[in-house]
């Protein structure tokens, strides 16, 4: 349904916009003047100055896989993150956990888990969609590499970034 937005009725002075133009230009020159004397500038000189210690808990840096207190890899290769990933940065190859493994009852784990950081857009959908609390966006933001291959984080690298996370739900422990 079309909505008719009521236009404000302008006086002649407003219609020629000259006063608003002047007002706007006074604002910008005000900023200019203050910035000229170093006031109000918010830019941080990046490589020298960093904000790392101030990063909030919800900061969305590089996605990484985590293990829990029992040293179990949380990911069960459900591939929901691969599905939700808007730039299709995630590639997972699942495999069955061999029966002699301590966690054989979980049955499934990723054989390969690769995130192409050249593609990743740090949206955090993977973390949001994960039913196993296995993938988290950490505070690493400076991801560099000299080739495209180097920008692909494999499973080992992802666990390295992710580390151990405690206090997560351990639903698999209840299984026989």
């Amino acid at each position: 349904m079309a909505i008719v937005v009521k236009r404000p009725k302008l006086t002649f002075g407003e219609k020629i916009y000259l006063s608003s133009i002047a007002k706007g230009m006074m604002i910008t020159i005000g900023h200019f003047w203050r910035a000229l004397f170093g006031k109000g500038t918010v830019t941080m000189q990046y490589p020298e100055e960093k904000w790392d210690e101030n990063l909030p808990e919800y900061y969305r840096g590089a996605p990484a896989l985590v293990t829990d207190e029992q040293d179990r890899e949380r990911c069960v290769a459900c591939q929901l993150c691969e599905f939700i990933c808007p730039p299709r940065a995630i590639t997972i190859t699942p495999e069955e956990i061999p029966s002699d493994d301590q966690w054989a009852k979980v049955e499934k784990r990723p054989q390969k888990f690769e995130i192409d950081m050249a593609r990743c857009i740090y949206c955090g959908f993977c973390q949001e969609v994960c039913p196993e609390q296995a993938i988290f966006l950490r505070k690493d933001y400076a991801i560099t590499g000299v080739s495209r291959d180097e920008m692909v984080h494999d499973k080992k690298k992802l666990y390295e970034i992710g580390g151990v996370r405690e206090g997560l739900v351990n639903k698999w422990n209840k299984l026989k």
């Binding site: 020159i29 200019f32 910035a35 500038t41 918010v42 830019t43």
Partner: peptide, 10 residues
């Protein structure tokens, strides 16, 4: 430079 100053940048 002027644009940056106007926008509180460097």
């Amino acid at each position: 430079r002027v644009a940056a100053k106007i926008q509180n940048r460097v």
